[in-house]
Write a protein that binds this DNA or RNA. Structure first.
Lengths: 247, 247
DNA sequence: CGAATCTTTGAATCCTCTCAAGTCTTGTGG
DNA sequence: CCACAAGACTTGAGAGGATTCAAAGATTCG
């Protein structure tokens, strides 16, 4: 099983300037409708990074100067509770953005800690670029609003799927989410989250998560393959996720 | 105690054209930074309504042609779960908007059912107006983004405050929210929500809500005054809300 | 006034949390 | 390279909390 502790020895890797022109997922991102070729000079300052699982992308309270586009992997945005525990308020998947509040005003601060849940590739876009794009191409605001909207969807998913029902249902739904993401990325196996993260996502204690995960492994909902990946029984998990009370 | 069933005999009352110029809460809304006087012709189609508690404001799936500004009262946005139960995904308070997804594209549909939780005054703004405003005054996009951002805050509040911790904590925090809203409106007493709504807000069964509310009344956290209002012990509720484990 | 709906309450069950101990993993330093 | 320490995960037992089912009060609206 994988360890997602924040103390991983691997480091954030700088991968140089982003190559938006050849970006494989551009059509799913902020720049979907943009003539990237014409905009090239403006986009030059965009940098690309690779974050190992567990690495902090940005911290709550810091003045927000960048919006982060996830190209690959998965980020979590989380808040610290009064008792020091953490609660994930949304997941940011490939094509979506983190730190969108950087667009609000020039001294706005990030609302959350953003951390890679799985090894992630992220483009770091200075908010200035997005402001300029919006000035020059008002249509770009439509794109921005779609991204705000998607953030809302992500938050609603945390409420409706991951914070509602029994522990077994919540965990099953979270696993189905990971499965959907893996399949969208063309992978056959999933990378599980750590117990801590599952707990912060569902609002349930780590021990309870651990027990349900153990049950899922016992009943072959999840099967450990080599040490990198886990294969799964999707139909089985779906039964747990949406408790169809068969009469 | 109040009944918030959707079958109230009172009806939605049309109150004619909105008078933005003399709107008491304009400075908290979409039009905070606008020269309303100059814009008057454009704003003419804005209508004002009064919804009794329990009335549907708009329905999920309907083509979204209006954004709704809450001037007074409280709205809930809710989703239907697979088992037919409801889950509130955010509260919309005075100054904020509901149905903001109407801005996305001309045939977008509402994401939720929006219902008045407390008697509400609402202005109904055709999305066209907001589009035109944005075209003519690009600064207006900043305002729109602030409103998107506030929607996210409202969703995060549902996650972090109303869907985390014990039933007692969740209910206490929901009551503190109602208290804050009442005080912001200059009222000394609060209007409780129905058990159904508290349940949909917290993700807890109606029976459990009822038990905790009974406990709060027994311990004088809540005291029934006349039959319209309830007074409260804020400090006491805060202790329940943020379980300060006194060592 | 009466039917329908909502709310309250009880009792039993089941689930989840807490606390605690034990196991496994990982990274560090000798 | 191995041993160790720190942290993460697992598992158990018991207590406490939440849900379920059922029935009895309240309210509300026609």
């Amino acid at each position: 099983m994988q360890n997602h502790s924040e103390s991983k020895c691997l480091n954030v890797r700088w991968e140089g300037r982003a190559n938006c022109l050849q970006c494989a997922i551009r059509k799913q991102t902020l720049f979907a409708d943009l003539n990237v070729q014409a905009m090239e000079p403006l986009l030059r300052p965009i940098q690309q990074y690779r974050y190992p699982a567990g690495k902090l992308v940005y911290a709550e309270g810091v003045v927000a100067q960048h919006v982060f586009v996830v190209r690959k992997g998965l980020l979590k945005l989380e808040e610290t509770l009064h008792d020091g525990n953490l609660r994930i308020v949304r997941l940011v998947e490939p094509g979506q953005v983190a730190g969108i509040e950087a667009l609000l005003d020039h001294s706005h601060r990030y609302d959350h800690n953003a951390t890679a849940l799985q090894a992630a590739e992220v483009c770091e876009i200075p908010y200035v670029i997005l402001h300029r794009l919006a000035e020059q191409h008002p249509v770009f605001f439509e794109t921005l609003m779609e991204h705000w909207h998607h953030q809302l969807h992500a938050a609603e998913q945390v409420i409706v799927e991951f914070s509602t029902g029994t522990v077994r249902e919540r965990v099953a739904r979270a696993l189905l989410k990971l499965i959907a993401l893996a399949e969208a990325a063309g992978e056959q196996q999933i990378h599980l989250l750590g117990v801590r993260d599952m707990s912060a996502l569902t609002g349930v204690t780590r021990e309870s998560i651990s027990r349900v995960m153990a049950e899922f492994k016992r009943t072959n909902m999840l099967v450990k393959q080599d040490d990198t990946g886990i294969s799964y029984n999707r139909a089985g998990l779906q039964r747990f996720a949406w408790q169809e009370d068969i009469i």
